[in-house]
Nucleic acid binder design. Structure first.
Lengths: 198, 198
DNA sequence: TAATTCCTTGTACGGTCGTTCTAGTAATAC
DNA sequence: GTATTACTAGAACGACCGTACAAGGAATTA
């Protein structure tokens, strides 16, 4: 009364390949047939492993979030203060090798604003991840209200600059603006902790 | 050898109605049939007036840009300096009555990052409009390099905050962050022009 | 009035979409 | 070996899409 066991690894393989395809081709061509063709399987195989297309999109977004969070978390990591954390995040996000991933990321924003539930939830979680990292980077002795407001501003600014970077590709101009912002952040942090412990 | 003259006003009516529909329903349902149904005409009528669907999208974006630019331009208008201009723009963009329009605006961003030409051009023009307004707001005696970098930062920050506002709807938190940013801007401007002429 | 052009409509075509059905093969448990 | 189940594939269905075609009424000029 038992048959063949489920091969979870097979599903994971297909999922990773699907995420790569989504990052490269965006949502425009994210249909069963093109994806199946690119992955070298039939549409039925994808349906078998992911169920509905909506469900496939959900797991793709989930995995994309894992990647993004891992990248941010690693960048913020053990930075001593907010200014350093912000600079680390910006350095990582402005890396052209990450652009494809962020392009998809902003494409999700576009959809979240018009097809609420599905994408909005994804974004809430991603931003929550960012917020958590950046609030923690400000140390436990910071006023929570100040920490929240500062983290919100940092995320918004980096996101806006990144959006500019992705649409215009003008690295010099955007980098200039980013430096201005980061300098402000570092200038603010200095008087508070003049000789900070290592 | 002449017949009925072209009724340009009719086309303008349909276009405005189409823009309203797009602002309200987004791109998801922006197909000939739903739009035609909402406007109370047949799809063939729309095809007759706009040609291809791509062409209709182009004129819709054009009109959306006109609206956005008019709003920004009016807000910046005769503000004395950059800080005041930025505050005016933020005040206007954070008005919930403008949200639907900005939602569509960001939806265009999402598409521009994956279906380049058509939408990217729209965004370049819109941002160029913003940049021009904000560079002018800094007065003619400002170093162009500084003016560009500052305008870039202001636009990016406002855009990022607006994106946060639209996705989370948390007005208090975002407003807090915006105030922090605007205060920095105003603080910077003060020492340069302590007693400025009215 | 007659001719011409605009405006509008209904219908239909080819294409892609998500999904379902049917069926065959491979791998495990009994 | 046999039964059960996972995996894969191909074909087909209904729905929606953008677009083209044929045709009729309305408005203007000659």
């Amino acid at each position: 009364m038992a048959g063949r066991p489920v091969n979870h690894q097979r599903r994971a393989e297909l999922l990773d390949a699907a995420v790569d395809y989504a990052v490269e081709h965006g949502f425009a061509e994210l249909s069963w047939r093109p994806v199946a063709c690119a992955l070298g399987v039939s549409t039925t195989t994808l349906v078998h492993h992911f169920g509905t297309k909506e469900q496939m999109l959900e797991v793709i977004l989930g995995r994309l979030r894992e990647r993004t969070f891992a990248a941010t978390s690693e960048a913020v990591g053990d930075q001593p203060d907010l200014a350093a954390a912000a600079r680390a995040v910006w350095t990582r996000t402005s890396d052209p090798r990450q652009w494809a991933e962020f392009r998809l990321f902003f494409a999700v924003y576009g959809r979240a604003l018009q097809a609420p539930r599905q994408f909005a939830e994804f974004l809430e979680r991603v931003v929550a991840d960012w917020m958590r990292s950046l609030v923690e980077a400000q140390g436990p002795d910071t006023d929570p209200a100040v920490a929240t407001r500062t983290a919100t501003l940092v995320i918004a600014t980096i996101r806006g600059l990144l959006l500019d970077l992705l649409t215009t590709g003008d690295r010099d101009r955007v980098q200039d603006a980013a430096e201005t912002f980061l300098a402000t952040l570092e200038h603010k942090a200095r008087p508070q902790r003049d000789a900070r412990p290592r």
